[in-house]
């Protein structure tokens, strides 16, 4: 029980830290942050419109108030879900923008990650089960090789080969011009077609980490005394591999899954940008290039909170999977 309380405590503390970090980032630069931001917006070709001005002011809080008062206002705004207006997509609010982009990312990333985790864990377990065999070297060397390929480069090559040269799949976007988002068959099949290449790009490199992690963990657990004793007891090989190898070796991967989600969002930014996919990652990059600070801040906060929640869920799952957890050190 103590374990769950501690994990919950850590969740709340990191949440607070992330919110605070989000507050501090725009204020790190010297001088008045609002002035600095406005000055940089003015440096842009287009003139600063009142909407932008208002948005920046709102984001940074009252200018004359001290830092603490600003912080207080900021916390209040976040608790009530007021992230302000996006000025590159005026008149949409930041919340609306995120709401539109979220399902795209959630489905693409959610599906590919679960598949990657499952495939990677299985392949890794298989390699460990057949340690030092041909299967093992093919899996290990193969994943090492693929792991060295830059992810975004693979994505570019996929477009080059399958979209442009062979013309099998669309080059980018979330759906074609002929359909519009809605509960129609046309839209879903179209969206599916558009998501194949990004998904493949994510799936090529996705399982690598899980394969190597699982293999190494399982090679170790199978070398432990309990696995050797299981062999001495005449347990079937498969049984040993599952209950005395994989079952224990998978535990660090479960915690790893949540931590990986953080890194994974990075991949999302790249893949969504390359494929022009209408998800959160592309939105973040657009916000950065348009200097849409309110949107940028909200997106960062949003993704961080998402990762924290996933982490907390993984911790809870881990607690159920590992009976030793009360002794385990906080990760």
């Amino acid at each position: 029980m103590l374990y769950f309380v501690r994990r919950a405590g850590f969740f709340v503390a990191t949440l607070w830290a992330a919110v605070t970090l989000n507050f501090l980032i725009p204020r790190i630069q010297p001088g008045d942050p609002a002035q600095a931001l406005l000055a940089r917006l003015q440096g842009n070709t287009q003139a600063v419109n009142p909407v932008q001005l208002e948005a920046v002011r709102k984001m940074l809080g009252t200018q004359d108030g001290n830092l603490l008062a600003q912080y207080w206002d900021y916390l209040g705004a976040i608790c009530t879900g007021q992230f302000g207006v996006s000025y590159s997509y005026y008149p949409y609010t930041v919340t609306e923008m995120i709401g539109t982009a979220l399902p795209w990312t959630l489905i693409l990333v959610g599906v590919t990650q679960l598949v990657s985790f499952a495939v990677g864990t299985l392949l890794g377990a298989w390699a460990a089960y057949r340690r030092n065999s041909r299967v093992d070297s093919v899996i290990t060397l193969g994943s090492t090789f693929v792991g060295t390929l830059p992810f975004f480069w693979i994505a570019l090559l996929l477009i080059f080969v399958f979209a442009i040269t062979l013309n099998w799949f669309p080059e980018g976007g979330g759906y074609g011009g002929g359909s519009s988002p809605g509960w129609s068959w046309l839209f879903f099949s179209d969206a599916f077609q558009h998501s194949v290449l990004p998904a493949v790009a994510l799936l090529i490199t996705g399982p690598i980490g899980w394969i190597i992690g699982m293999r190494n963990n399982m090679v170790q657990t199978l070398g432990e005394d309990y696995a050797r004793l299981a062999r001495a007891r005449g347990l079937p090989r498969r049984r040993i591999a599952l209950t005395y190898g994989a079952r224990i070796a998978i535990l660090p991967n479960v915690t790893g899954f949540a931590i990986a989600l953080g890194g994974l969002l990075g991949g999302t930014v790249l893949v969504e940008t390359i494929f022009n996919y209408p998800g959160l990652g592309r939105l973040l990059l657009e916000a950065v290039s348009n200097k849409d600070y309110p949107l940028m801040q909200a997106l960062f906060l949003f993704t961080t909170i998402g990762v924290l929640i996933a982490n907390f869920l993984a911790d809870v799952t881990y607690g159920f999977l590992d009976p030793r957890v009360r002794r385990a050190e906080a990760v």
């Binding site: 432990e224 005394d225 309990y226 050797r228 004793l229 299981a230 001495a232 007891r233 209950t243 005395y244 079952r247 224990i248 535990l251 999977l321 590992d322 009976p323 030793r324």
Partner: peptide
């Protein structure tokens, strides 16, 4: 033929 290992600290499966 059965056996008891040197250190049984680790000879039981920890998760079952």
């Amino acid at each position: 033929l059965s056996t008891v290992f040197q250190s049984s600290m680790n000879s039981l499966n920890p998760v079952i």
